[in-house]
Structures are given as structure tokens and as C-alpha cells.
């Protein structure tokens, strides 16, 4: 296998990311409406912002894809005038990096629901770390802070982990994933028979 990502991988990743970038843009107002109720319920929806990395990784299964996807999605939201502005880029970089770290720790060999859920969780944790500086969340009342952390991580696992897994599973039935995935040893064995 040649070193690094091929143009095909990059373009497909970016396209996937931009689709999610558009969803992120639509997600913003929804998140805003829910958040006016207070009580941190909007945090359950936050996981959507982590999904580009996990879906792109599950589809293409190569190193670097998760980070690129999350960055591209954030960039897409940014250049189309997302209401969070540059904030998205910083969060995107952190979230993509941590998701990538989880996939790397499995040596890019695991593509199951648990792995992507862990990646979602890692993205959630890094977003919380950035929030300590950006959102002063350390200064919230304790019960409120615990609700924020709990809801965000639950949302991250459900949306970026479980949903991403099922979406890609459904996508596999359409046959497009075989276009972009690298050949595996199973494929080579099939040739020998």
C-alpha cells in the first residue's frame, strides 16, 4: 500500500465531511432551541459534531481519515458562515485528533461499534477540556456540571458511536464502501481460490 492518503481517499473523506458539515450547520439552530430550556439537555445532541470522524473512518478505514474528516467538516461549517465561527475549527481539530488517537491505538485494525464509540467518547472528552477554557464550565454548579458531562458523553456514544456504526452498516449494503476501502487479506485470499 502506498504511503499516505490517495487523492481518492481525500476527496471522498472531504465529501463525507461536507455532508456532515451541512448537517452541523442545520444542527446549530436545533441545539440552540433545545439549550434555551437550560438543564443541559442540548448536550445529548452535541455528539452529532463528532460523527464525521467516525463515519469517515468506518467507510475508508485508513490512518488520518478521522482527523481530516472532522477538520473538513468544521471547515465546511466555517466557510459557509456557521454561527459559531472560528470556534468550530479549534474544536474540530481537537475532536478529530482524539478520535484519530483512539483508532491509532487499535492500529487501525478494528472497525466495530465499540471502537467508534470509544472514539466518540474521546472526542467528547476533548470538547469538555476545551470548554474548561472557552466556556468556563468548571464554574458551573456541581450538579449542573455533572449533567453536562454525563449528557454530552452519552450523546457522543449514541450518535458518533452507535448511529455511525449502523449508518455505515446500512451503507455497506449499497456497495459503495467497497469502492473506497483498501483491499484486505480476505480479498487476496478470495483471488487464490
Amino acid at each position: 500500500m502506498s504511503k499516505g492518503l490517495k487523492l481518492t481517499d481525500i476527496l471522498v473523506t472531504i465529501i463525507i465531511a461536507l455532508i456532515f458539515g451541512a448537517i452541523y450547520k442545520l444542527w446549530g439552530p436545533l441545539y440552540g432551541i433545545v439549550s434555551t430550556f437550560g438543564l443541559q439537555l442540548e448536550q445529548l445532541l452535541y455528539g452529532m459534531w463528532f460523527i464525521a470522524a467516525t463515519v469517515a473512518y468506518l467507510i475508508i478505514r485508513k490512518p488520518g481519515v478521522a482527523l481530516l474528516a472532522e477538520l473538513a467538516a468544521a471547515h465546511g461549517e466555517f466557510i459557509f458562515g456557521g454561527e459559531w465561527g472560528i470556534t468550530t475549527l479549534i474544536y474540530g481539530l481537537g475532536q478529530g485528533f482524539f478520535a484519530e488517537f483512539i483508532f491509532a491505538s487499535f492500529r487501525y485494525q478494528k472497525y466495530n461499534m465499540v471502537t467508534v464509540s470509544l472514539a466518540g467518547l474521546a472526542s467528547g472528552i476533548v470538547s469538555l477540556l476545551i470548554d474548561v477554557y472557552y466556556g468556563y464550565i468548571g464554574d458551573l454548579a456541581m450538579w449542573n456540571l455533572l449533567m453536562l458531562i454525563g449528557f454530552r458523553l452519552i450523546g457522543a456514544v449514541i450518535i458518533a458511536g452507535v448511529f455511525a456504526h449502523f449508518i455505515v452498516q446500512a451503507l455497506e449494503k449499497t456497495g459503495v464502501t467497497s469502492l473506497v476501502r483498501p483491499a484486505t487479506s480476505v480479498d487476496y485470499d478470495a483471488l487464490d481460490q
Binding site: T8, L11, I15, V55, F163, L171
Partner: peptide
Amino acid sequence: IKAFAIPMLSQSIRRAHRIAIAME
């Protein structure tokens, strides 16, 4: 999510793949 994501993703991946090969 599925009703929108699957057709959108599959169509776009196919198109992106074709374009990428042409660009290469």
C-alpha cells in the same frame, strides 16, 4: 437520519470516487 444519510452518502461517494480518478 438514515433515510437522508444513506442515499446522500452513497451517491456522493460514488461521484467523488469518479471525480477523484479523473483528477488523478
